[in-house]
Simulated scan of single mutants.
Amino acid sequence: MKFTILTSSVLAGATLLSILAPTATFAATDGTAAGNGGTELPQTDKTEVGISFGDNTHNANTGYLRLQMVPHVLDFGNHQLLDAAYPTFSADGTNDGKTANDRHPNYDNGDANMTATLNTSDTKLDKVNGDVWATVVDKQVTRDNVDANNTAASGTWTLSVKADNGLAAVSTSGARSTTDVVDGASLSFANTASAQTSDVFGLTSEAQDATWATDLANAATTEVVKPVSTVNDATLSLMNDGSGNEATVAVAQDGEGQGADVFGWKKSDVKLTMPKAAAVSNAVYKANLTWTLSATVA
């Protein structure tokens, strides 16, 4: 009898557990607006993945003939002091002849020099690859507005550069000092190299150059491609009243320069020489340059 009672109790307990166990449910939606609270499924969102190399910023210039690129920053570094015996600095951030005076290769106390250099796989630009660079794009041979003063031919242009002002201490807000200034510093671009390529879009990555190869193939005029014949070194005087000289970097004669013309300098060939009598404080000093592409009627 006890065995029977025990068995009955176990069975009763099992039955009770079965009754109390929840019934399994599964999530489900049909993906319709009605079933999903007013918004249909599927839904999407986007992720952008990016990485960047070198100076790939562009100006807003357009036209058959345009100034496409100039050095945006020339970084002469951060240094302990100005030694009158070693007044020259290179655009890699070093003090020529006195590297022990170098604190940072970046004038803003950073560890990376901000003087950008060209990075390209175009073998026609090997002579300027790795250089500080300026680019003129000449697509005049594809011109469709030909008249007496605007011919469908490359060339007849000049690239020049001038200092807008001299070196002045700059505050964190960007304001230039009118008292803590250095007049008469010299900025030089030596051993100017040049190269020319027909792969304009490959160099610039600008949408306005995407059809260049097709436009050239369909051009009514054909011409023998010639490099720019006159390429110069340049030395500028940095004066705070803007009276410094303008230096000619390149001159393209009639028929020269079709495509992209790149002018380059090694960082070590771009130099800032301070006046030996200059007095400086613990400050960042800046000056500004303007590069000009001009054309004349042939």
Rank of each mutant, 00 (worst) to 15 (best):
L82D: 08
A60L: 09
D55Q: 13
A116W: 07
M69L: 07
K127W: 03
G77M: 06
A85T: 14
Y86K: 10
H104M: 08
T115G: 09
G54D: 12
V128R: 01
N145V: 06
Y64E: 09
N129R: 14
D131M: 08
H79G: 13
F76R: 00
G63Y: 07
N101A: 12
D131N: 11
D144L: 09
K139C: 04
V73L: 10
V70F: 00
N106K: 03
T94P: 00
T120Y: 03
N59S: 14
T57P: 06
V132T: 11
T62L: 11
V70Q: 01
V128I: 07
D122M: 06
T120E: 00
G97P: 06
P71H: 13
R66K: 09
Y64V: 02
D126E: 10
N113H: 10
R103D: 13
T115Q: 03
H58D: 15
N106D: 15
T115N: 08
D122F: 05
A100N: 12
H58V: 15
N78P: 00
H72W: 07
L118D: 05
Q80L: 14
V141S: 05
L65A: 00
G130Y: 03
D92E: 12
Y107Q: 00
P71A: 12
V73I: 15
N129Y: 07
L65I: 03
H58L: 10
V136Y: 03
L118M: 14
G130R: 04
D108A: 13
D122G: 06
K98Y: 10
G54K: 12
M114H: 08
R66S: 10
R143I: 08
T99W: 00
N61W: 05
T57V: 13
T123G: 00
A60V: 11
A84T: 09
